[in-house]
Design a binder for these strands. Structure first.
Length: 565
DNA sequence: TCCTCTAACACATTTGAAACGC
DNA sequence: AGCGTTTCAAATGTGTTAGAGG
């Protein structure tokens, strides 16, 4: 194996910088016994060269290193996306196909600053900018919801968040272009149920559907533009549809999540992938994903504060009809629960009145109207680009079991499916321990007093959970896999329609035949995992301009599946 | 039986095209 | 012709509800 590693290393090192400005040798120093892991480490070492910082927006200090650029892959130039996608397949059931090398090695594009000569966004060296601060604008409203345990409806077609995440940024360079992005990560590794009047843990979490990135439609915009108005994520939608093709953020019902904001100094989508991520997590925006509201207080808060739900307010027609039927508790009844005093009720009502005014702009898009990069025009662009949206390359979920196992779930007992999924969830706990080695305590991210759970202890939000490769019974010796940091696994599902539709094309790099041969040798021992790209990129030419859409569950292992799987 | 999820529903808001006036 | 305002229908965003399904 060591020989393979060295061979591969030489192969990688031998590839030239595509821009012709980098003469530094490719970084070496892998460890491990599998070329898959070696490749993973290599890619991580390159792609994650500028660790993002998790910052506490309330105190402004960095809380720890996120570890890796969380969103590699989405929006990469089409040809790069294609070969990165194939490259990624190497870690989850197959080594990189030989043909992926026809597009060059991912490291060609992703070498660190200083080695490749790309202009470094943000601070020199591409490090997170400690001057950047973020503040939650509608903090009061969020606090109201957080008090009872915020719930967000998720639907098959996608549902907006309410309250929406609305933040203001400061410390940006006025003339530097920034992307503002949002993702939602699991807050812990538990599944919940609403019992009585509170959320209680109901078991291990199901594996989180691969994260998707929501890019604020005004991106990229100058720092001055971002700082001019609050940044609202009102258009973001949540879904529980694992097969969603609309780019909505996929969540599991009855699971707890933490939204995160990323401010990235990058002039375009290409640069975004090696730029520093300034990541902010507002603890009070933690929420429970549900398909139907569980806590009546949350329902009432939504009705009272969301303009679209006016019809359900006390003077609304729907509510009037409903009350005449006597089927539903009124707001007063809701707040007159045993643990609520009369003064509390008044307090709530007063706060509602205040919130109605404070947060009236929550759905207001006026804050976007006068930006140079018009939000409206961007939205128009998005709708105009539906051709691309309809056919996003949706790669297979890397943490899910091989598709043959999924198929067997339909025809046979689902043990083969459940096992890897549960193992994925269980690994998240290990991720906490792992993250604590390298970062500050996750508890720092979510203060105990902000916990939405009672009486359960507050649960930290995971900055970087880990998933297994989805192979039942663990990873066989000598086989690829183990667990990989989830941002790494995120890659394939990050390719939102938005990103892909806007990704510029780069010229296909020239092929280093020596490197191809060397790398092919390195993988020769894993022929059972080799797969033809045609099986995943059907009807694509040899050098496709963009990966064909792949149904998340439609991919299949090659016919030759090792017996021990 | 319980829990979770979905689709249909009525209402409110937003959007954008058309009409109109200057 | 160009621009701004108004009007209005369609689209979209809400919570509710009944019922399906495990």
């Amino acid at each position: 194996m060591g020989g393979q590693k060295q061979t591969l290393s030489r192969a990688v090192s031998g590839l030239p910088c595509p821009r012709g400005r980098c003469s530094a040798p490719f970084r070496d120093g892998w460890t491990g016994s599998s070329p898959y892991l070696a490749l993973a480490r290599e890619w991580l070492s390159v792609a994650g060269a500028w660790p993002a910082k998790i910052q506490n927006p309330q105190h402004g200090q960095a809380l720890g290193t996120l570890g890796i650029h969380p969103y590699l892959g989405g929006g990469l130039p089409a040809n790069l996306t294609d070969h990165l996608e194939r490259y990624r397949l190497g870690f989850h059931g197959g080594v990189p196909s030989q043909t992926h090398l026809a597009h060059g090695f991912p490291g060609d594009y992703l070498k660190p600053h200083g080695q490749c000569g790309f202009p470094a966004p943000g601070l020199p060296g591409g490090k997170p900018d400690p001057r950047i601060k973020a503040r939650l604008e509608n903090e009061n409203l969020w606090a109201q919801f957080d008090k009872f345990g915020t719930e967000m409806i998720i639907t098959k077609l996608g549902r907006r968040m309410f309250p929406t995440v609305k933040m203001s940024a400061s410390g940006l360079e006025p003339n530097t272009k920034y992307f503002v992005l949002m993702d939602i990560v699991p807050a812990d590794d538990s599944r919940y149920k609403f019992q009585g009047k509170e959320w209680v843990v109901a078991g291990k979490a199901e594996p989180h559907m691969p994260g998707r990135l929501y890019i604020h439609p005004d991106s990229p915009a100058s720092g001055a533009q971002w700082m001019r108005h609050p940044i609202s994520f009102q258009k973001l939608k949540l879904t529980n549809n694992n097969l969603d093709q609309q780019g909505h953020i996929i969540l599991n019902s009855m699971h707890k999540y933490q939204p995160r904001i990323h401010i990235v100094a990058a002039p375009d989508l290409v640069s975004l992938h090696w730029a520093a991520f300034n990541t902010f997590a507002f603890p009070q925006t933690c929420f429970m994903a549900v398909t139907a509201y569980q806590n009546e207080r949350i329902t009432q808060l939504k009705i009272d504060n969301n303009p679209f739900a006016k019809g359900f307010r006390e003077n609304g027609q729907l509510r009037s009809k409903k009350r005449s039927g006597g089927a539903s508790p009124t707001s007063g009844e809701l707040t007159s629960s045993p643990e609520k005093t009369t003064s509390d009720n008044d307090d709530v009502l007063d706060k509602r009145a205040r919130l109605n005014s404070v947060d009236s702009g929550d759905l207001d898009v006026s804050d976007l109207d006068d930006r140079p990069a018009s939000s409206m025009s961007v939205e128009k662009d998005l709708s105009d680009e539906k051709v691309d949206v309809e056919s996003p390359p949706t790669p297979p979920p890397p943490f899910l079991p091989p598709p043959q196992l999924i198929k067997s779930e339909v025809e046979e007992p689902p043990t083969s499916l459940v096992s890897p999924l549960m193992s994925a969830a269980s690994l998240m706990a290990a991720a906490v321990a792992e993250s604590q080695k390298h970062t500050s305590s996750p508890a720092d991210i979510r203060p105990p007093e902000a916990s939405m759970l009672s009486p359960a202890a507050p649960r930290p939000c995971l900055p970087s959970p880990t998933y297994s490769t989805g192979l039942p019974g663990g990873v066989p010796a000598g086989m690829p896999g183990g667990s990989l940091p989830y941002p790494y696994l995120y890659y394939s599902h990050m390719m939102s329609p938005y990103l892909l539709s806007r990704a510029p094309h780069l010229p296909t790099p020239t092929l280093d035949k020596t490197a191809v041969a060397a790398t092919r040798d390195a993988y020769s021992g894993y022929s059972p995992y080799l797969r033809s790209p045609a099986s995943h990129h059907s009807s694509l030419p040899t050098t496709p301009s963009r990966p064909a859409p792949i149904h998340p569950y439609s991919y299949a292992l090659p016919p030759q599946v090792p017996a021990n799987l």
